Amino acid sequence: MIDRLIEIGRCYGMEMNVEKTKVMKISRQPTPVTIKIDQKQLENVKCFKYLGSLLTDDGRCTCEIKSRIAMAKAAFSKKKNLFTSKLDLNLRKKLVKCYIWSIALYGAETWTLRAVDQKHLESFEMWCWRRMEKISWTDYVRNEEVLIRVSEQRNILHEIRKRKANWIGHVLRRNCLLKEVIEGKIEGWIEVTRRRGRRRKKMLDDLGDRRGYCHLKERALDRIKWRNCFGRDWTCRLINY
């Protein structure tokens, strides 16, 4: 495929930069991929940034979430003058969600969250409220007490689920390549031997409800029902377009 791309590109006077072109294999097997351009092998990397998101060779979102949280904390330190006690509490909370959470949750619609990732996000949420109220960790104030002071609940995971519901609703109502990728399967591939340990959580497992992905897709096709749906599961809560 690369040879074909280079051949067609040269017909239009375009050359591929070997030094800037990298290769990443997303798999459990760490074996490198051998791809050459003009007898020069492309460098194999374990991670790279694409459109602001950090992609890794293990296919997980942990590194991306940690990177986003670090950027959000740095932004909080730069804008800490906005969160002074002179402002109203509700206004300060809106500023945090507007300026800080928007940085931390960039691209969250496509995250597949594990338990450890959820803990990182919830810890970041409490970090924001503690810094806003200038509560040091040496004060030994419990998280429940902090939430009472700011009149808030743990909402960051719910915000991610709401964004996912909005995003998957748009995707499932269209006939696009992204929809085919989400629902696609490799023809003729059969997993003969099962690997040790728990089965890895997939993107559809994180998006579907208890009644399955087919039921989720059926509801999403009707835009009116999708807007007005307020079921027990998270795919039906507070969905706004």
Rank of each mutant, 00 (worst) to 15 (best):
2 I>H: 00
7 E>K: 07
7 E>A: 13
11 C>V: 14
11 C>Y: 02
14 M>G: 05
16 M>W: 06
17 N>S: 14
17 N>F: 07
20 K>N: 14
23 V>M: 05
27 S>C: 06
33 V>D: 13
34 T>F: 05
41 Q>W: 06
42 L>M: 02
44 N>S: 04
45 V>T: 10
46 K>S: 15
49 K>I: 15
49 K>V: 15
52 G>A: 05
55 L>E: 02
55 L>W: 05
60 R>V: 01
62 T>W: 00
67 S>C: 01
69 I>S: 10
69 I>P: 01
70 A>N: 14
70 A>H: 15
71 M>E: 15
72 A>W: 03
72 A>D: 03
72 A>Q: 09
72 A>T: 04
73 K>E: 12
73 K>L: 10
74 A>Y: 08
74 A>H: 10
75 A>Q: 08
76 F>G: 03
78 K>H: 03
81 N>A: 10
82 L>Q: 06
84 T>F: 06
86 K>T: 09
86 K>E: 14
86 K>L: 06
94 K>D: 07
95 L>N: 01
96 V>P: 00
97 K>M: 09
104 A>F: 06
104 A>T: 04
109 E>L: 01
109 E>N: 03
110 T>R: 01
112 T>L: 07
118 Q>C: 14
119 K>A: 11
121 L>M: 05
121 L>K: 01
121 L>V: 04
125 E>T: 07
127 W>I: 15
132 M>V: 12
133 E>D: 00
138 T>Q: 03
140 Y>C: 05
142 R>L: 07
154 R>F: 02
154 R>S: 14
156 I>V: 14
157 L>W: 01
158 H>R: 14
160 I>G: 05
162 K>N: 06
163 R>P: 09
168 I>A: 07
168 I>T: 00
169 G>N: 03
170 H>M: 01
171 V>N: 03
176 C>K: 04
179 K>Q: 11
180 E>F: 07
183 E>N: 06
183 E>K: 03
185 K>A: 14
185 K>D: 10
186 I>H: 01
188 G>V: 06
195 R>V: 04
198 R>D: 01
200 R>P: 08
203 M>D: 00
205 D>A: 05
208 G>A: 14
209 D>H: 04
210 R>L: 12
212 G>M: 09
214 C>Q: 11
215 H>K: 14
216 L>V: 04
217 K>T: 03
219 R>A: 04
223 R>T: 01
225 K>M: 02
226 W>L: 00
227 R>L: 06
228 N>C: 04
232 R>Q: 10
234 W>H: 04
235 T>Q: 13
235 T>A: 10
237 R>H: 05
238 L>N: 14
238 L>G: 13
239 I>V: 15
239 I>G: 04
